[in-house]
Design a protein around this nucleic acid. Sequence first.
DNA 1: GGAGCGCTCGAACGAACGTTCACTAGATTC
DNA 2: GAATCTAGTGAACGTTCGTTCGAGCGCTCC
Lengths: 196, 196
Amino acid sequence: MQAHDSRLESILDSVEALFARDGYHATSMRDIADASGLSVAGIYYYIPSKQIALAMVCERIFDRLDAGVPTPDSAATPIELLQRFVRSHLRYVLANDSAYRVLLHDMELLEGAASERVRLRKRNYFRSLAHMIARIDPAARFTARLAAGALFGMLNWAPTWYRAEIDGNCDQATDALTSLFLGGLLASGNVAEALL
Amino acid sequence: MQAHDSRLESILDSVEALFARDGYHATSMRDIADASGLSVAGIYYYIPSKQIALAMVCERIFDRLDAGVPTPDSAATPIELLQRFVRSHLRYVLANDSAYRVLLHDMELLEGAASERVRLRKRNYFRSLAHMIARIDPAARFTARLAAGALFGMLNWAPTWYRAEIDGNCDQATDALTSLFLGGLLASGNVAEALL
DNA sequence: GGAGCGCTCGAACGAACGTTCACTAGATTC
DNA sequence: GAATCTAGTGAACGTTCGTTCGAGCGCTCC
């Protein structure tokens, strides 16, 4: 039972890395078998199908993302909560390149019930950030929906350009992006609009 | 000659739509033939291979993106130039969902010389925005590199959440995102950092 | 009226795909 | 020690893949 589970986890590690590198469709069950040190048929002892392998990998990723969502405690200010969320999210996507790429490229290839389930988790994750933002912005120059979309864009795009040796370590990038976002969110309105 | 070229263009329209909807690997030459009203063999009269079809589609997309990059004229302020760039870019990615999806998902599947060429065009496009930003920010709280990455993230992520009936028309979204970005870029520093 | 050309086709190629099958060596249970 | 279960295998299934080939159109030019 325990041996079975840890073996499954290591297979999913391989699957995640292969899907990230080559994409879902360009990864064959032979590739997965080779990377896992099993025969092709042996893989099917642990995973019923390639589709379900993708579903398992996606669920794992959201398990880890959700674990980073800060729970509102009475001591923390809304801005502190946002800062924690950004730090957790950015750390994950920058440190787990495979997961980021599966999420970006392959998640939408899910079908059926698994697709619905993962899509719901994605929406909930998005909303948890939107709620934090709504609690911050007093003047509400922007809808929380738009602001959350913009912030997620800044964060999820980071892996495409970020390089630690140029842009500083992950926490420095977090601080910069958070400051850029909050500066825009809380700017008194006339600061930017007068210039347009 | 002319008939040949317009036929090729219409085939590339089909290819772009199919790659966008199903992805490069899940699109077969049979699919392309059906969508183009030709036989499979007939497609190869216009396109030497599936790989080159992808390269052609990517080049077309950058032709259109580049056409929207504003040329600096003496009358326009740096902020006006940025505004024009953002408007042009966002209009394109929101109105051309197929192109956006090919760019996001399939461009990286290019191989060989075509890959290098397209990658270079992407980098140049990124740099044209970074240069505009560098000319705006006087205090330089952020590197132009980070600011351009953040802005591109905001814009390129928009197709994943933007819906005209909720978020207003494309120009309204442009104004909101530009204002959010410029507000953060030009914020006096202590506005946001005092809160962290 | 035949030669050449631009364009299109059906048929086929070998290779790779996801999945299933019958089977086995070893451990566990009764 | 017979029966059952776990973990794994090699071989094969039918299908689809990207690509190629030879041939057949309708057209223009000599």
